[in-house]
Simulated scan of single mutants.
Amino acid sequence: MTRRDIVTAIPTSFHPDGTLDAEGSRSIFRYVAQSGNEGAFVLGTTGEFPAIDDAEFETLVAAALDELGGAMRVIVHVGQPSAFEAVRRVRIAKQLGATEFAALTPYYLAVTEDAVFDYFSEVSEAIGDGTLFVYVYPKRSGVEVSPELLTRLATLPNVIGAKVSELSLDELAAYRAAVPDGFVLYTGADRELVAAGEAGAQGVVSGVSSVLPGPFRALAQAADSGDPAAIEQAQTAVDDVVSVIGGDMARMKAAYRSMGIADGVCRMALVEPDASAIAEIERVLAAYGS
């Protein structure tokens, strides 16, 4: 059977004054733990990691491992502009018991492929016996990862896969053709669980599934059944949810507020949904919520 992991990218909750809402974040973790999804992606883009300091990182990783660890895999994102900073976060997370990690390529300044390899070599060495996903997101990081570079990164002893965001299915297929068998590819495109699988991916890292996991689970089950009508129906539901919530953390948090899970907002400069958007969020919650 084709592997179709659903790994939930989890938002971080903040108070209106910008301070960390630790209890609200714990509530989100508890909610996600009940989703039935295979894993959690903590403190990635959806978690607003660029706005998190080391003390907050420690608080959130501890809470995630506590609330999610018994229910699903927990992949802790440690990517930073420099290997020095990323390694520091690896050490914090390892002390708390984390064993699975992801790291965005170094970002902001232009780097060579050799510099990217050196960065991941240092992060890999710090992780030791744990596992590491390369996080490829050139539209945010400014750093391209060629199939040849990803193949080179796959030679590092604990690099087991890559999370790929905002690249085409053709680019995903090019990665698949280049990397070794057994190397895991996750797409960051919420709606492409099935399509990305056909291009060689083993699953999706989905922020939208942190709010409404049901349509994603239904799509995976439909794809496993091979029933075209069931797949089409399930894909339509996923497309509807993604069109309303998308990769928009402010909308995700509006949904949490509506569901009574957490009252938090975003810390980063994201636009709050207006009344019409709230109405659409309420619609999909009613249609697809449990």
Rank of each mutant, 00 (worst) to 15 (best):
K163C: 03
G69K: 09
S209I: 01
A98W: 06
A9T: 10
R26V: 05
I281M: 09
A64E: 09
G47F: 08
S82A: 08
V204F: 02
P50E: 00
G24A: 10
K94V: 05
V211T: 12
L104Y: 08
S209D: 00
E171T: 12
S165L: 13
V76R: 10
M1N: 13
V238I: 02
G142I: 07
P228L: 11
S168M: 13
G247D: 06
E125K: 11
E125I: 02
E125H: 04
F101S: 03
A40V: 15
R257Q: 09
V7M: 10
V76S: 10
L109C: 03
Y186A: 01
I127D: 00
D227G: 14
G214A: 10
G197P: 04
S276F: 03
E48T: 11
A98S: 08
Y186L: 07
T236M: 14
A83N: 00
E198G: 04
V271Q: 13
I261V: 15
Q233M: 05
V145T: 05
L169E: 01
A71F: 14
V134K: 12
T236W: 14
D5M: 10
M72K: 15
I6C: 07
N158W: 06
T59H: 00
Q95C: 11
V194S: 01
P273E: 07
S243T: 10
M259L: 15
P157L: 11
G24K: 08
R30K: 05
V143Q: 12
T2S: 06
A71P: 03
V111Q: 00
T46H: 04
A254I: 01
P228W: 09
M249E: 05
L109M: 08
T105D: 00
D66K: 14
I127T: 03
F57K: 05
R176Q: 04
E272K: 14
A162W: 02
L153G: 01
V87L: 11
D227F: 15
A220R: 15
A250D: 02
A220S: 15
I75V: 14
G264H: 03
A9Y: 08
I278H: 14
G289R: 03
L193H: 03
T112A: 01
E85T: 13
S146I: 15
V76N: 09
F101V: 05
A262R: 10
A55H: 05
P11E: 01
T12I: 09
V241W: 12
D248C: 12
V90N: 05
V242R: 05
D190K: 15
V184C: 00
V242A: 07
V159G: 02
Y186W: 04
V123N: 02
G130R: 00
A62E: 14
C266P: 12
I10W: 02
A9W: 09
V184S: 00
V61E: 09
S124R: 02
P81L: 03
D53Y: 13
G197T: 07
